[in-house]
Simulated assay, not measured.
Amino acid sequence: MDRIPITPEGFEKLKKELERLKTVERKEVIEAIKEARAHGDLSENAEYDAAKERQGLIEAKIAELESKIGRFEVIDPSNFSGDKVVFGVYVEIENVETGEKKRYRIVGPDEADISKGYISVISPIAKALMGKSVGDTVLVRAPGGDKEYEILDISLS
C-alpha cells in the first residue's frame, strides 16, 4: 500500500470533511429520500432520483476519504531546518528568463490548490525543487517546455 504524504493542516481538513459528510450530508440526504418517498410513485419521482444520486456521490466520497485517511503519512515540516526544499515548506522562486517571481508551498496531492500557491509534491516543479537550497538554479521540464528557476527563499510559513 503506497503512503500518501500530507501536511498536518491538510490531514485535519480532510478529517473534518469526512466528519461533515458522515454527520451532516448523510443525514440530509436520508431526509430528502424520505420526503421524496412520501410523494408516492418512485418510478417518475425526480426528487427521489436526485436524492438517491446525491446519496451515491456522498457515500463514494466517504469511502474514498476513509481509504485515503488510512494511507496518509502526516509529515510535519516544522521538524525541518529550512535550509533545503522539503515537503511542506514554502519556496519563492524566480524565472531566470522573465524575472517573474512565484511563491509555492509543496504539499500532498490531495492538498494541491494552485489558486493558493499549493503545488503537489509529485508535480514537475516540486520534483525539481526538492532537496535544493537558496541560490540554486533548477531546470523544470514541464509539458509547456523547459523553464529555469532560481530559488530565492525557503520558509516554514
Rank of each mutant, 00 (worst) to 15 (best):
R26N: 14
A32T: 00
R20Y: 07
Y48I: 02
E94R: 15
F72Y: 15
E35V: 12
I30P: 01
K27P: 07
F72P: 10
V74I: 14
A63V: 05
K13Y: 05
F11T: 05
Y48M: 01
K61C: 02
K22S: 03
G88W: 02
E92M: 11
A46V: 12
K61N: 13
A38W: 08
V24R: 09
Y90F: 13
P77Q: 12
S81Y: 10
F80L: 14
E19P: 05
A51P: 06
K15N: 02
I62V: 06
E19M: 06
V74E: 03
K84L: 12
S81H: 02
N45G: 00
G40M: 00
D83K: 12
G56A: 06
V29R: 00
F72G: 01
V89A: 10
D83P: 10
A36E: 01
E47C: 00
L14T: 03
E94Y: 13
E53C: 02
D76F: 14
N79T: 14
K16A: 09
G40Y: 08
V86T: 14
E35L: 10
V91K: 11
S78C: 11
K27Q: 10
A32K: 06
K52S: 01
A50G: 05
G82E: 11
L57A: 07
G70E: 10
I30D: 12
Q55K: 04
V85L: 08
N45M: 13
I30R: 11
E47D: 06
E28K: 03
R26L: 15
V29L: 13
A32P: 07
V85N: 11
I69Y: 03
Q55A: 04
I58N: 00
I69H: 01
S43I: 11
S81I: 12
D83L: 09
I33Q: 04
E59G: 00
K84F: 09
E47Y: 08
K84N: 14
Y90L: 11
K52Q: 11
